[in-house]
Design a protein around this nucleic acid. Structure first.
Length: 483
RNA sequence: GUCCCCGUCGUCUAGAGGCCCAGGACGCUGGCCUUUCAAGCCGGUAACACGGGUUCGAAUCCCGUCGGGGACACCA
């Protein structure tokens, strides 16, 4: 059903970090391209001179890189046929097409100043009449600059066809959407300085780059109509469109950089969410495949299509994100998780790289942690020297009889030929059986002594992770403290 | 204000006229397991916005109401 070789794109404007909505748009486009053997293009819409920065370009590249969303064409992967993928490097092209449209009477130069337009708009809005402001057509039929104005002062406006008419398109997720000409007006395509505006540059590029399907957020639905008018004026066949449902913040408003810190993709990297989990979470916001929840990259590629995309906006759900992260802890090879954990450990001042305990540590903690940050936090007691005892825990488990049991366990532990899980756990068993008490009576004092607290992985595992020397040292400290 | 989109458990969703007095997942919660905490397993909680139609039959189709969101720039 899909075009045999779709060409899709992700076209962010580099005005800040890569945000979640953008990441999901990129994901969907990426998956669609992969699924149908097409091409995924990255195009930088850097025409906003005030806000675009090289740092933002880098931030977006870094974000996509972290998520593993690699592009086939774009910055660093130029294709000679399509030219540069930064809009500011394509200015000639926009100018050329604008001149063509002017010569055909499909666009015109407008000399109204920004101030004048703003004034008129405000007047209309104040009047509280029905409808919103529409350009009055002041410069519609000018053949030359009016007195006191120069050709270079003019912006270029699109000329809406006169008369009745409607524009419509069949959206791949929303179905047919129609709008009457009367809702549209002569919009600005290009500023006097030759910088194209979104609706203009976007169309020119999408067509010239042979884009077959434009998938973007639903906030762009209304801009599709003027864009369609442009395709028509240029005599070009428009691509297909697929408008994605929005992602909402906890306040149920569109997830935005301004109001929602969680909109920053890299924030999640910093808090220890893994890309597999973030992608998994984000794809389930607005797309589903039956009852599947935990979905791998391979399955996404195999299953994704726009017919699975829903039309209702989804609310950001941090609990589910964390749950998914834990699922991925358990799905990924321990070595991979360990590698990702290292920077978090190092940030806490531990020399973790190359430590042989890393993988056992992941194995022990992945069922008890939802983020790498959390894992690193609970891991810190295995890297520190010595331990601070929790008062309540010590009071409960390091008194009288418990101390005796701990002493017995300490002797057996010290005598062990091999410091591995089974014999370690065996000590708890032997000591408790000999003393005719439950295993908890023996395990808890040990646990408190070596971790300072009442909760940890299994005693054998914990002893192993702390290490023979350090464990005995901590037990001795606890023993000494009790006497 | 105008235009556009949307409306199934608190949240993400399955559902494309009878399989649904609505299924899964997160969360919350009861139990089991158990040397602690988790994890796991078993169970519970909770929804078709409302009102009219159409139909033998509607969460599914139509209309209206209400509610939510988005867009209305020489930003993208």
């Amino acid at each position: 059903m899909a075009p045999s070789k779709p060409r899709v794109r992700f076209a962010p404007s580099p005005t800040g970090y890569l945000h979640i909505g953008g990441a999901r748009t990129a994901l969907f486009n990426y998956l669609y391209a992969k699924r149908y053997g097409g091409t995924f293009i990255l195009r930088m819409e850097d025409t906003d001179q005030e806000r675009s920065t090289p740092e933002s370009v880098q931030a977006i590249l870094d974000g996509l890189d972290w998520l593993g969303l690699d592009w086939d064409e774009g910055p660093g992967k130029e294709d000679p046929k399509y030219g540069p993928y930064f809009q500011t490097q394509r200015l000639d092209t926009y100018r050329r097409h604008a001149e063509l449209l002017i010569s055909q009477g499909k666009a015109f130069r407008c000399y109204c100043t920004r101030e004048e337009i703003t004034q008129r708009r405000e007047a209309v809005e104040k009047a509280k009449g029905p409808g919103s402001y529409k350009y009055e057509g002041t410069c519609h039929d000018l053949k030359a600059p009016p007195p006191g104005k120069k050709l270079e002062d003019a912006v270029i406006r699109f000329r809406m066809p006169s008369g009745e008419g409607t524009v419509s398109f069949n959206d791949k997720v929303l179905g047919t959407i129609t709008k009457p000409y009367s809702d549209l007006d002569d919009w600005v395509m290009m500023r006097a300085d030759g910088i194209p505006l979104y609706n203009y540059g976007c169309v020119i590029d999408d067509h010239l780059m042979d884009i077959t399907l434009v998938s973007r957020g639903q906030e762009h639905i209304n801009s599709t109509f003027p864009q369609l008018m442009l395709y028509q004026a240029l005599g070009w066949t428009p691509p297909d469109f697929a408008h994605l449902p929005l992602i909402l913040g906890p306040d149920r408003e569109k997830l935005s950089k301004r109001k929602h810190p969680e909109a920053d993709v890299m924030l999640h990297k910093r808090t220890g969410i893994m890309p597999e989990a973030l992608l998994n979470f984000v794809i389930r916001l607005g797309w589903s495949h039956g009852n599947d929840e935990v979905i791998s990259r391979e399955q996404m590629v195999e299953w994704f299509d726009f017919d699975g995309v829903g039309s209702t906006s989804g609310v950001w759900n941090p609990e589910k994100l964390q749950w998914l992260n834990q699922q991925w802890f358990k799905l990924l090879p321990p070595a991979v998780v360990a590698e990702r954990l290292v920077p978090f450990l190092e940030a806490r001042g531990f020399q973790a790289k190359g430590d042989a305990r890393l993988e056992p540590l992941v194995l022990a903690l992945r069922e008890r942690s939802r983020t790498l940050e959390e894992m690193a936090n609970t891991a810190s007691i295995y890297f520190k020297s010595g331990v601070t005892l929790d008062e309540k825990a010590a009071a409960k488990h390091l008194g009288g009889d418990s101390l005796n049991l701990l002493r017995q366990a300490r002797e057996k532990l010290a005598a062990l030929p091999a410091w591995t899980v089974e014999p370690l756990d065996g000590v708890v068993k032997t000591v408790s059986e000999a003393a005719q008490v439950g295993m908890g009576k023996v395990a808890q004092p040990i646990r408190v002594a070596i971790t300072g607290n009442t909760t940890s992985p299994g005693i054998g595992e914990t002893l192993l992770l702390v290490g023979r020397e350090e464990a005995l040292k901590r037990i001795d400290a606890a023993l000494a403290r009790g006497t």
